[in-house]
Simulated scan of single mutants.
Amino acid sequence: MIERADQLVLNYVSKAADAAHGVLTTDQRLDFARRLRARIEVERRGSQNARQVSKVLDRFGDPVALVEREARRLAEAARDEAEAPDAGAPAEREGATERFPAIVDDRDAPPGVQTYRRLARERSRGLPFAGLRRAAMSSANPMATGGRDARTIVKDHPRETAAMVLLMVAALLVPVNLPAVAIFQIPVVVWAAGAVLVLFSESWQLGEKLLGISAPLLGYTVGGVLVGGLRVGSAAGLDAFLTQFWSVSGVMFMIGTALGVVWLTYRLLDVS
């Protein structure tokens, strides 16, 4: 079974190969895909962490832009060879090139431009919900996320999407009076299924997973106790408190679930 990180690489190389159809010859396209995969493997340094691999792919930028840059480089090499046929064999021959186009961080730019890019990246990392903003912007400017918008992220993360859908379904089932399965309520069973998918995901860190799946339980217990206690007010007696607790704990479970899913979504989008 292909690991999640390897699948991200394969998807990226496949997009580049598809973009090369009609732009590069068959030999050039195969050579380009082979070198692109090799360069990615060098940059990822054997990492199997999906988040780290996503960051590496983001550094390469838009696959279409890579193909266009490769086409320009090959055209320039062919022109130079035609203008200087006696200057010796070129270092890069069509279909067997040795140099791969520089990735984003390797571009030869003046020191002032490099400093500006570094400062801009640092400022963007410090902005709240920067990942969500980039995903929203990508529909108008695909380069804002290197082609990663909400649609492609959902497509590339089916397990994570299914997990969050199950968590939301569990919350929506709370007001529905469904019969219990053995001693477990249906919303609890659905929440447990979603929690298992979250725990087996490779896209979130352990702390992110625990916070996302524990938010509904915290809302149910802590939120129910606090809100129930406030509603009881000065009324004495355990029965009065339990009445208020049961009346608000379901709603607090739904609120906790919504917050947990928002957190998981934010961490899933905020990969760069």
Rank of each mutant, 00 (worst) to 15 (best):
Ala236Cys: 05
Leu8Trp: 00
Leu74Tyr: 00
Met1Asn: 13
Pro216Asn: 02
Gln114Glu: 11
Ala89Trp: 07
Val271Gly: 08
Ala162Pro: 00
Asp86Ser: 14
Pro111Val: 10
Val232Ile: 08
Glu94Tyr: 03
Leu269Ser: 04
Gln48Met: 12
Thr243His: 08
Gly212Glu: 02
Lys15His: 04
Leu10Val: 03
Val176Tyr: 07
Trp191Tyr: 03
Ala215Phe: 07
Arg69Tyr: 07
Ala38Asp: 14
Leu24Ile: 02
Arg4Gln: 07
Leu24Trp: 02
Val53His: 01
Ser54Gly: 11
Asn11Lys: 01
Glu83Trp: 04
Val198Ile: 14
Ser14Phe: 05
Ile183Trp: 13
Arg44Gly: 13
Trp191Lys: 00
Ala240His: 06
Arg159Leu: 14
Arg134Ala: 01
Ala162Thr: 09
Ala144Thr: 04
Pro128Asp: 01
Ile2Ser: 09
Ala120Asp: 01
Arg73Lys: 13
Lys209Trp: 03
Gly22Met: 03
Ser47Met: 13
Asp6Ile: 03
Ile186Val: 15
Gln28Asn: 07
Val113Asp: 14
Leu36Trp: 01
Val227Cys: 09
Ser247Asp: 11
Gly207His: 02
Gln114Asn: 11
Val64Tyr: 07
Ala240Lys: 02
Ala192Leu: 05
Glu98Asn: 14
Ser138Trp: 01
Phe253Arg: 08
Ile153Tyr: 05
Gly194Phe: 04
Gln205Ile: 02
Ala109Lys: 10
Ala109Asn: 12
Leu218Cys: 05
Leu172Ala: 15
Glu208Lys: 04
Gly147Trp: 02
Leu172Ile: 11
Val154Lys: 05
Gly228Arg: 05
Thr97Lys: 10
Gly126Trp: 08
Ala5Asp: 01
Leu8Pro: 00
Thr152Lys: 11
Asp58Gly: 04
His21Tyr: 06
Arg231Lys: 12
Leu119Thr: 08
Leu218His: 00
Arg107Lys: 12
Leu24Cys: 02
Ala87Pro: 02
Met252Thr: 06
Glu43Arg: 13
Thr26Leu: 13
Gly256Pro: 00
Pro158Met: 12
Gln205Phe: 06
Asp239Met: 08
Ile183Thr: 13
Val188Gln: 01
Lys155Glu: 14
Leu211Trp: 09
Gly95Ala: 12
Val261Ile: 08
Gly95Trp: 05
Ala236Asn: 07
